[in-house]
């Protein structure tokens, strides 16, 4: 802050404090990962906090005797589908918000706020009844449609902030050369916002992959469940089988971590500037 030149001692004290905080804050996750290499018997003895006699027994059990891969596949299908639809819809809408003014655009911008705060339970009840008559319960299509809309505000704001950084002069030059406005968007703006669109896509994927509530309502058959819903089956069926439960949770979190590391530098764009600035 206002004291610009801290001594090395001060800097390393802060370093120490932050290291301890990071450890404490992430303790639940760290313990979960370590304990996934212990059998449930070892875990119940609880002879020490740190694991000993590491074993991958939980992971082979998970792979061979449970629906884990099925859940993972369902998660990938639902997340990929909703990523494509929401990135496409958000790119178009984000461009409109970035380049056009007028009552329609402003109203839409306001509507996104309503969408963001909307209690999803209110949408789930009528949609459950509708989807049941349409035969969409237990179909990935049901969650894909829901996720697309749930992600729309965030993805649109993020797309807008990327398009805002692309100078309008480029499009104007294209217009002079006889390009249509939409053509200028497709050929000039879109290719330039590649990294931004990739970040939006990964965010959408991450959110869909993590999502529990909607999937829990629409995917009721065990063969249709995504990972977060599938794991709750472990909690019920194998209620004391902590080993498998923690192995399943650990494997679930691996794709989340990888995707997150890829986009963490963009996170301020969407989450913060989107949600807060509007």
């Amino acid at each position: 802050m206002a004291y610009p030149n801290p001594t090395p001692a001060q800097r390393w004290t802060r370093f120490g404090i932050l290291s301890v905080i990071v450890l404490v804050v992430n303790l639940p996750i760290i313990l979960m990962v370590m304990n996934s290499f212990q059998t449930t018997d070892q875990l119940m003895q609880r002879s020490s906090l740190l694991p000993h006699d590491l074993t991958t027994a939980n992971y082979s059990y998970l792979s061979e005797r449970t629906n884990f891969w099925r859940y993972l596949w369902n998660s990938v299908v639902a997340s990929t589908g909703s990523t494509i639809t929401s990135a496409a819809a958000a790119a178009l809408a984000g461009y409109a918000l970035s380049r056009f003014r007028g009552r329609f655009v402003t109203t839409y911008s306001r509507t996104l706020f309503i969408v963001q705060m909307f209690p999803i339970i209110l949408a789930l009840i009528p949609l459950f009844i509708l989807f049941r008559t349409l035969g969409l319960i237990n179909s990935p299509l049901s969650v894909i449609i829901l996720y697309t809309v749930v992600h729309l505000p965030f993805a649109t704001w993020m797309a807008r902030s990327f398009f805002d950084t692309i100078p309008r002069e480029l499009e104007e030059a294209a217009l002079v050369d006889g390009c249509s406005r939409f053509g200028a968007f497709l050929r000039i703006v879109l290719p330039l916002s590649g990294p931004g669109l990739a970040a939006i896509a990964i965010f959408s994927f991450l959110f869909s992959y993590n999502e529990f509530f909607v999937a829990n309502v629409f995917l009721r058959d065990e063969n249709a469940m995504t990972l977060p819903v599938g794991i709750t089956m472990f909690m019920q069926q194998y209620s004391t089988d902590w080993g498998s439960l923690m192995a399943a949770a650990t494997l679930t979190v691996v794709p989340t971590f990888i995707l997150f590391l890829g986009i963490q530098k963009y996170i301020t764009y969407g989450a913060v500037s989107g949600g807060v600035k509007g």
Partner: peptide, 23 residues
């Protein structure tokens, strides 16, 4: 540190609940 402190936020809800429940 900035990234490491964001982890609780990006972990799926089910994973955070499983890890806390164990404690």
């Amino acid at each position: 540190f900035r990234v490491a402190l964001l982890l609780p936020w990006i972990v799926p809800s089910i994973v955070s609940i499983v890890s806390w429940r164990w404690m």
